[in-house]
Design a protein around this nucleic acid. Structure first.
Lengths: 168, 168
DNA sequence: CTGAAATACTTGAGCGTTCAATTGTGTTTC
DNA sequence: GAAACACAATTGAACGCTCAAGTATTTCAG
Protein backbone atom coordinates (compact mmCIF):
# COMPACT_ATOMS: atom_id res chain seq x y z
CA UNK A 1 0.00 0.00 0.00
CA UNK A 2 1.25 3.47 -0.88
CA UNK A 3 2.11 6.14 1.62
CA UNK A 4 -0.97 6.86 3.69
CA UNK A 5 -2.68 10.17 3.09
CA UNK A 6 -4.11 11.06 6.48
CA UNK A 7 -7.27 13.02 6.94
CA UNK A 8 -6.80 16.76 7.20
CA UNK A 9 -8.55 18.69 9.96
CA UNK A 10 -11.65 19.41 7.92
CA UNK A 11 -12.02 15.82 6.88
CA UNK A 12 -11.32 14.66 10.38
CA UNK A 13 -14.04 16.84 11.87
CA UNK A 14 -16.50 15.93 9.17
CA UNK A 15 -15.79 12.26 9.61
CA UNK A 16 -16.23 12.28 13.36
CA UNK A 17 -19.38 14.38 13.28
CA UNK A 18 -20.80 12.12 10.61
CA UNK A 19 -19.92 8.93 12.48
CA UNK A 20 -21.46 10.17 15.69
CA UNK A 21 -24.57 11.48 14.02
CA UNK A 22 -25.14 8.24 12.20
CA UNK A 23 -24.55 6.12 15.27
CA UNK A 24 -26.93 8.15 17.37
CA UNK A 25 -29.49 8.33 14.60
CA UNK A 26 -29.51 4.61 14.15
CA UNK A 27 -29.82 4.08 17.86
CA UNK A 28 -32.69 6.54 18.15
CA UNK A 29 -34.63 4.94 15.33
CA UNK A 30 -34.10 1.45 16.61
CA UNK A 31 -35.01 2.36 20.15
CA UNK A 32 -38.20 4.12 19.10
CA UNK A 33 -39.36 1.21 16.98
CA UNK A 34 -38.45 -1.46 19.47
CA UNK A 35 -40.13 0.41 22.27
CA UNK A 36 -43.31 1.42 20.47
CA UNK A 37 -43.73 -1.46 18.06
CA UNK A 38 -41.53 -4.29 19.29
CA UNK A 39 -39.68 -4.33 15.97
CA UNK A 40 -36.04 -3.62 15.21
CA UNK A 41 -35.58 -1.06 12.48
CA UNK A 42 -34.26 -3.70 10.10
CA UNK A 43 -37.44 -5.74 10.55
CA UNK A 44 -39.60 -2.72 9.98
CA UNK A 45 -37.79 -2.19 6.70
CA UNK A 46 -38.50 -5.75 5.67
CA UNK A 47 -42.20 -5.31 6.29
CA UNK A 48 -42.22 -1.92 4.56
CA UNK A 49 -40.53 -3.30 1.46
CA UNK A 50 -42.89 -6.24 1.31
CA UNK A 51 -45.94 -4.03 1.75
CA UNK A 52 -45.04 -2.14 -1.40
CA UNK A 53 -44.27 -5.14 -3.56
CA UNK A 54 -46.81 -6.26 -6.14
CA UNK A 55 -48.95 -8.89 -4.45
CA UNK A 56 -47.16 -7.96 -1.26
CA UNK A 57 -44.65 -10.73 -1.89
CA UNK A 58 -41.10 -11.15 -3.09
CA UNK A 59 -38.50 -13.87 -3.27
CA UNK A 60 -35.96 -13.97 -0.48
CA UNK A 61 -33.12 -13.12 -2.82
CA UNK A 62 -34.89 -10.18 -4.38
CA UNK A 63 -35.95 -8.85 -1.02
CA UNK A 64 -32.40 -9.19 0.28
CA UNK A 65 -31.07 -7.29 -2.71
CA UNK A 66 -33.59 -4.51 -2.36
CA UNK A 67 -32.73 -4.11 1.30
CA UNK A 68 -28.99 -4.50 0.76
CA UNK A 69 -29.15 -7.29 3.28
CA UNK A 70 -27.22 -10.51 3.33
CA UNK A 71 -29.28 -13.62 2.59
CA UNK A 72 -28.32 -14.97 5.97
CA UNK A 73 -29.53 -11.93 7.83
CA UNK A 74 -32.81 -11.97 5.98
CA UNK A 75 -33.23 -15.66 6.63
CA UNK A 76 -32.83 -15.20 10.36
CA UNK A 77 -35.15 -12.24 10.32
CA UNK A 78 -37.73 -14.12 8.29
CA UNK A 79 -37.68 -16.95 10.81
CA UNK A 80 -38.54 -14.54 13.59
CA UNK A 81 -41.14 -12.61 11.62
CA UNK A 82 -42.78 -15.82 10.48
CA UNK A 83 -42.89 -17.00 14.07
CA UNK A 84 -44.69 -13.78 14.91
CA UNK A 85 -47.17 -14.38 12.11
CA UNK A 86 -46.15 -11.24 10.25
CA UNK A 87 -44.95 -12.95 7.12
CA UNK A 88 -45.52 -16.27 5.41
CA UNK A 89 -43.00 -18.28 3.37
CA UNK A 90 -43.60 -20.93 0.75
CA UNK A 91 -41.60 -22.53 -2.02
CA UNK A 92 -42.24 -21.48 -5.59
CA UNK A 93 -43.38 -24.57 -7.54
CA UNK A 94 -41.61 -23.76 -10.83
CA UNK A 95 -38.24 -23.43 -9.11
CA UNK A 96 -38.16 -25.22 -5.84
CA UNK A 97 -34.98 -23.48 -4.76
CA UNK A 98 -36.67 -20.13 -4.36
CA UNK A 99 -38.86 -19.06 -1.49
CA UNK A 100 -41.64 -16.50 -1.72
CA UNK A 101 -42.14 -14.25 1.28
CA UNK A 102 -45.49 -12.62 1.72
CA UNK A 103 -46.57 -10.09 4.31
CA UNK A 104 -49.65 -11.25 6.20
CA UNK A 105 -52.54 -9.10 7.46
CA UNK A 106 -50.97 -9.33 10.89
CA UNK A 107 -47.75 -7.93 9.44
CA UNK A 108 -49.60 -5.16 7.61
CA UNK A 109 -51.36 -4.21 10.79
CA UNK A 110 -48.10 -4.08 12.72
CA UNK A 111 -46.54 -1.98 9.98
CA UNK A 112 -49.43 0.45 9.83
CA UNK A 113 -49.47 0.79 13.58
CA UNK A 114 -45.75 1.42 13.69
CA UNK A 115 -45.53 3.79 10.75
CA UNK A 116 -46.73 7.07 12.25
CA UNK A 117 -44.41 6.95 15.22
CA UNK A 118 -41.53 5.94 13.03
CA UNK A 119 -42.07 8.69 10.49
CA UNK A 120 -42.38 11.15 13.31
CA UNK A 121 -39.02 10.05 14.64
CA UNK A 122 -37.41 10.24 11.22
CA UNK A 123 -38.64 13.82 10.93
CA UNK A 124 -37.50 14.70 14.39
CA UNK A 125 -33.95 13.47 14.00
CA UNK A 126 -33.40 14.21 10.34
CA UNK A 127 -35.74 16.26 8.21
CA UNK A 128 -36.78 18.76 10.82
CA UNK A 129 -33.17 19.66 11.38
CA UNK A 130 -32.34 20.18 7.70
CA UNK A 131 -33.19 22.89 5.22
CA UNK A 132 -34.66 21.81 1.87
CA UNK A 133 -31.30 22.47 0.22
CA UNK A 134 -29.61 20.23 2.74
CA UNK A 135 -32.06 17.45 2.01
CA UNK A 136 -31.05 17.66 -1.64
CA UNK A 137 -27.39 17.72 -0.71
CA UNK A 138 -27.77 14.72 1.54
CA UNK A 139 -29.40 12.80 -1.22
CA UNK A 140 -26.57 13.49 -3.63
CA UNK A 141 -23.98 12.67 -1.01
CA UNK A 142 -25.75 9.40 -0.25
CA UNK A 143 -25.91 8.50 -3.89
CA UNK A 144 -22.23 9.22 -4.29
CA UNK A 145 -21.49 6.80 -1.53
CA UNK A 146 -23.81 4.23 -3.02
CA UNK A 147 -22.03 4.44 -6.34
CA UNK A 148 -18.99 2.98 -4.64
CA UNK A 149 -20.60 0.84 -1.98
CA UNK A 150 -23.23 -0.68 -4.22
CA UNK A 151 -22.39 -0.08 -7.87
CA UNK A 152 -25.07 -2.38 -9.25
CA UNK A 153 -27.65 -1.38 -6.72
CA UNK A 154 -31.15 -2.14 -7.84
CA UNK A 155 -34.28 -0.15 -7.21
CA UNK A 156 -37.71 -1.66 -6.87
CA UNK A 157 -38.91 -1.48 -10.44
CA UNK A 158 -42.64 -1.69 -10.45
CA UNK A 159 -45.51 0.73 -10.09
CA UNK A 160 -46.62 1.27 -6.52
CA UNK A 161 -49.89 -0.62 -6.73
CA UNK A 162 -51.79 0.49 -3.68
CA UNK A 163 -49.32 2.52 -1.75
CA UNK A 164 -50.75 3.33 1.59
CA UNK A 165 -48.93 5.87 3.63
CA UNK A 166 -46.76 3.41 5.42
CA UNK A 167 -43.64 3.69 3.36
CA UNK A 168 -40.84 4.56 5.71
CA UNK B 1 -50.14 12.24 18.30
CA UNK B 2 -51.27 14.68 15.62
CA UNK B 3 -52.09 13.71 12.07
CA UNK B 4 -49.02 12.10 10.52
CA UNK B 5 -47.18 14.10 7.93
CA UNK B 6 -45.81 11.45 5.60
CA UNK B 7 -42.58 11.83 3.70
CA UNK B 8 -42.94 13.32 0.24
CA UNK B 9 -41.18 11.69 -2.69
CA UNK B 10 -38.03 13.75 -2.35
CA UNK B 11 -37.75 13.01 1.33
CA UNK B 12 -38.56 9.38 0.75
CA UNK B 13 -35.80 8.97 -1.81
CA UNK B 14 -33.32 10.86 0.28
CA UNK B 15 -34.16 8.82 3.32
CA UNK B 16 -33.78 5.50 1.60
CA UNK B 17 -30.58 6.41 -0.16
CA UNK B 18 -29.17 7.71 3.09
CA UNK B 19 -30.19 4.63 5.04
CA UNK B 20 -28.68 2.28 2.51
CA UNK B 21 -25.50 4.27 2.16
CA UNK B 22 -25.01 4.39 5.89
CA UNK B 23 -25.72 0.71 6.35
CA UNK B 24 -23.32 -0.31 3.64
CA UNK B 25 -20.70 2.15 4.80
CA UNK B 26 -20.78 0.85 8.31
CA UNK B 27 -20.56 -2.71 7.08
CA UNK B 28 -17.63 -1.92 4.82
CA UNK B 29 -15.68 -0.21 7.57
CA UNK B 30 -16.34 -2.93 10.07
CA UNK B 31 -15.47 -5.69 7.64
CA UNK B 32 -12.21 -4.06 6.64
CA UNK B 33 -11.10 -3.52 10.21
CA UNK B 34 -12.15 -6.95 11.42
CA UNK B 35 -10.47 -8.63 8.51
CA UNK B 36 -7.22 -6.67 8.48
CA UNK B 37 -6.85 -5.86 12.16
CA UNK B 38 -9.16 -8.18 14.07
CA UNK B 39 -10.93 -5.19 15.59
CA UNK B 40 -14.53 -4.07 15.23
CA UNK B 41 -14.87 -0.46 14.21
CA UNK B 42 -16.22 0.49 17.63
CA UNK B 43 -13.12 -0.94 19.29
CA UNK B 44 -10.85 0.88 16.92
CA UNK B 45 -12.59 4.08 17.93
CA UNK B 46 -11.98 3.34 21.57
CA UNK B 47 -8.27 2.87 20.96
CA UNK B 48 -8.13 5.95 18.76
CA UNK B 49 -9.79 8.14 21.36
CA UNK B 50 -7.53 6.85 24.10
CA UNK B 51 -4.41 7.36 22.00
CA UNK B 52 -5.19 11.06 21.75
CA UNK B 53 -6.02 11.64 25.39
CA UNK B 54 -3.46 13.32 27.62
CA UNK B 55 -1.44 10.55 29.22
CA UNK B 56 -3.26 8.17 26.90
CA UNK B 57 -5.85 7.56 29.59
CA UNK B 58 -9.40 8.57 30.45
CA UNK B 59 -12.08 7.54 32.91
CA UNK B 60 -14.69 5.11 31.67
CA UNK B 61 -17.45 7.67 31.92
CA UNK B 62 -15.54 10.35 30.07
CA UNK B 63 -14.52 7.94 27.35
CA UNK B 64 -18.08 6.75 26.99
CA UNK B 65 -19.31 10.33 26.65
CA UNK B 66 -16.70 11.21 24.07
CA UNK B 67 -17.61 8.16 22.02
CA UNK B 68 -21.35 8.58 22.55
CA UNK B 69 -21.33 5.06 23.87
CA UNK B 70 -23.39 3.60 26.67
CA UNK B 71 -21.41 2.77 29.80
CA UNK B 72 -22.46 -0.84 29.42
CA UNK B 73 -21.18 -1.13 25.90
CA UNK B 74 -17.88 0.38 26.84
CA UNK B 75 -17.59 -1.90 29.83
CA UNK B 76 -18.05 -5.00 27.71
CA UNK B 77 -15.64 -3.67 25.12
CA UNK B 78 -13.08 -2.82 27.77
CA UNK B 79 -13.27 -6.34 29.12
CA UNK B 80 -12.38 -7.74 25.74
CA UNK B 81 -9.69 -5.18 24.96
CA UNK B 82 -8.13 -5.70 28.36
CA UNK B 83 -8.11 -9.43 27.76
CA UNK B 84 -6.23 -8.76 24.55
CA UNK B 85 -3.73 -6.62 26.43
CA UNK B 86 -4.61 -3.50 24.47
CA UNK B 87 -5.79 -1.46 27.41
CA UNK B 88 -5.31 -1.49 31.15
CA UNK B 89 -7.84 -0.54 33.82
CA UNK B 90 -7.26 0.55 37.38
CA UNK B 91 -9.27 2.34 40.02
CA UNK B 92 -8.51 5.96 40.77
CA UNK B 93 -7.41 6.23 44.41
CA UNK B 94 -9.06 9.60 45.15
CA UNK B 95 -12.45 8.35 44.06
CA UNK B 96 -12.70 4.63 44.13
CA UNK B 97 -15.86 4.61 42.03
CA UNK B 98 -14.06 5.69 38.91
CA UNK B 99 -11.90 3.56 36.68
CA UNK B 100 -9.06 4.85 34.57
CA UNK B 101 -8.52 3.21 31.19
CA UNK B 102 -5.14 3.45 29.61
CA UNK B 103 -4.03 2.28 26.21
CA UNK B 104 -1.01 -0.02 26.41
CA UNK B 105 1.93 -0.24 24.00
CA UNK B 106 0.26 -3.34 22.57
CA UNK B 107 -2.88 -1.30 21.95
CA UNK B 108 -0.91 1.53 20.38
CA UNK B 109 0.83 -0.92 18.10
CA UNK B 110 -2.46 -2.46 17.03
CA UNK B 111 -3.90 0.98 16.40
CA UNK B 112 -0.93 2.14 14.38
CA UNK B 113 -0.95 -1.02 12.35
CA UNK B 114 -4.64 -0.71 11.66
CA UNK B 115 -4.74 2.99 10.90
CA UNK B 116 -3.45 3.11 7.32
CA UNK B 117 -5.85 0.49 6.02
CA UNK B 118 -8.72 2.08 7.86
CA UNK B 119 -8.04 5.57 6.59
CA UNK B 120 -7.69 4.17 3.13
CA UNK B 121 -11.11 2.59 3.42
CA UNK B 122 -12.65 5.79 4.79
CA UNK B 123 -11.30 7.62 1.78
CA UNK B 124 -12.47 4.98 -0.61
CA UNK B 125 -16.06 4.88 0.58
CA UNK B 126 -16.50 8.49 1.60
CA UNK B 127 -14.07 11.26 0.80
CA UNK B 128 -13.00 10.03 -2.60
CA UNK B 129 -16.61 10.06 -3.72
CA UNK B 130 -17.32 13.60 -2.52
CA UNK B 131 -16.34 17.04 -3.77
CA UNK B 132 -14.84 19.47 -1.26
CA UNK B 133 -18.15 21.33 -1.15
CA UNK B 134 -19.96 18.12 -0.36
CA UNK B 135 -17.59 17.43 2.50
CA UNK B 136 -18.53 20.80 3.96
CA UNK B 137 -22.19 20.12 3.41
CA UNK B 138 -21.95 16.74 5.05
CA UNK B 139 -20.32 18.27 8.05
CA UNK B 140 -23.09 20.82 8.48
CA UNK B 141 -25.75 18.20 7.98
CA UNK B 142 -24.11 15.96 10.56
CA UNK B 143 -23.90 18.79 13.03
CA UNK B 144 -27.55 19.59 12.50
CA UNK B 145 -28.44 16.04 13.38
CA UNK B 146 -26.15 16.14 16.38
CA UNK B 147 -27.87 19.24 17.69
CA UNK B 148 -30.99 17.15 18.14
CA UNK B 149 -29.49 13.75 18.85
CA UNK B 150 -26.88 14.95 21.28
CA UNK B 151 -27.62 18.49 22.42
CA UNK B 152 -24.99 18.60 25.16
CA UNK B 153 -22.42 16.73 23.16
CA UNK B 154 -18.94 17.27 24.42
CA UNK B 155 -15.74 17.52 22.46
CA UNK B 156 -12.41 16.38 23.74
CA UNK B 157 -11.09 19.58 25.31
CA UNK B 158 -7.38 19.33 25.54
CA UNK B 159 -4.42 20.01 23.31
CA UNK B 160 -3.34 17.03 21.25
CA UNK B 161 -0.10 16.30 23.08
CA UNK B 162 1.75 14.00 20.75
CA UNK B 163 -0.71 13.26 18.04
CA UNK B 164 0.65 10.68 15.72
CA UNK B 165 -1.16 10.16 12.47
CA UNK B 166 -3.44 7.51 13.77
CA UNK B 167 -6.49 9.59 14.39
CA UNK B 168 -9.30 8.00 12.47
C1' DC C 1 -27.03 -37.68 -20.37
C1' DT C 2 -23.96 -37.11 -16.71
C1' DG C 3 -20.90 -34.63 -13.63
C1' DA C 4 -19.63 -30.03 -12.32
C1' DA C 5 -20.90 -25.51 -11.36
C1' DA C 6 -24.16 -22.12 -10.18
C1' DT C 7 -28.15 -20.55 -7.59
C1' DA C 8 -31.39 -20.11 -3.54
C1' DC C 9 -31.73 -20.46 0.87
C1' DT C 10 -30.78 -22.13 5.74
C1' DT C 11 -28.19 -23.24 9.82
C1' DG C 12 -25.29 -22.74 13.97
C1' DA C 13 -21.55 -20.76 16.40
C1' DG C 14 -19.48 -16.59 17.92
C1' DC C 15 -19.80 -12.00 19.13
C1' DG C 16 -21.17 -7.15 20.08
C1' DT C 17 -25.03 -4.37 21.73
C1' DT C 18 -28.96 -3.47 24.59
C1' DC C 19 -31.61 -3.30 28.66
C1' DA C 20 -32.51 -3.96 33.41
C1' DA C 21 -30.61 -5.02 37.58
C1' DT C 22 -26.62 -4.81 40.81
C1' DT C 23 -22.48 -3.48 43.37
C1' DG C 24 -19.64 -0.28 45.37
C1' DT C 25 -18.47 4.43 46.56
C1' DG C 26 -19.11 9.31 47.43
C1' DT C 27 -22.24 13.30 48.75
C1' DT C 28 -26.23 15.45 51.05
C1' DT C 29 -29.49 16.30 54.33
C1' DC C 30 -31.58 16.54 58.66
C1' DG D 1 -23.56 10.43 61.96
C1' DA D 2 -27.04 7.83 59.71
C1' DA D 3 -30.23 7.49 55.96
C1' DA D 4 -31.18 8.76 51.46
C1' DC D 5 -29.54 9.97 47.25
C1' DA D 6 -26.40 10.33 43.33
C1' DC D 7 -22.73 8.59 40.66
C1' DA D 8 -19.34 5.13 38.35
C1' DA D 9 -18.99 1.03 36.57
C1' DT D 10 -20.18 -3.89 35.87
C1' DT D 11 -22.95 -8.03 35.00
C1' DG D 12 -25.89 -11.40 32.59
C1' DA D 13 -29.56 -12.58 29.59
C1' DA D 14 -31.69 -11.77 25.22
C1' DC D 15 -31.13 -10.89 20.67
C1' DG D 16 -29.69 -9.58 15.93
C1' DC D 17 -25.79 -9.83 12.80
C1' DT D 18 -21.73 -12.04 10.60
C1' DC D 19 -19.27 -15.61 8.72
C1' DA D 20 -18.48 -20.19 7.18
C1' DA D 21 -20.50 -24.29 6.14
C1' DG D 22 -24.29 -27.06 4.53
C1' DT D 23 -28.59 -28.70 1.82
C1' DA D 24 -31.45 -28.60 -2.18
C1' DT D 25 -32.35 -27.68 -6.71
C1' DT D 26 -31.40 -26.14 -11.35
C1' DT D 27 -28.35 -25.12 -15.27
C1' DC D 28 -24.61 -25.92 -18.16
C1' DA D 29 -20.58 -28.26 -20.63
C1' DG D 30 -18.72 -31.90 -22.96
Amino acid sequence: MAETRWLDDGEQNTWRAFLMAVNLLDGALDRQLRHDAGLPHAYYQILAMLSEAPGRELTMTRLARLLRSSPSRLSHAAARLEGDGMIHRHKRPEDRRTVIVEITPVGMKALEDAAPGHVHEVRRVLFDTLSPEQVGQLREISESMLSVLDPQGEEPRYPDPDGIGTRD
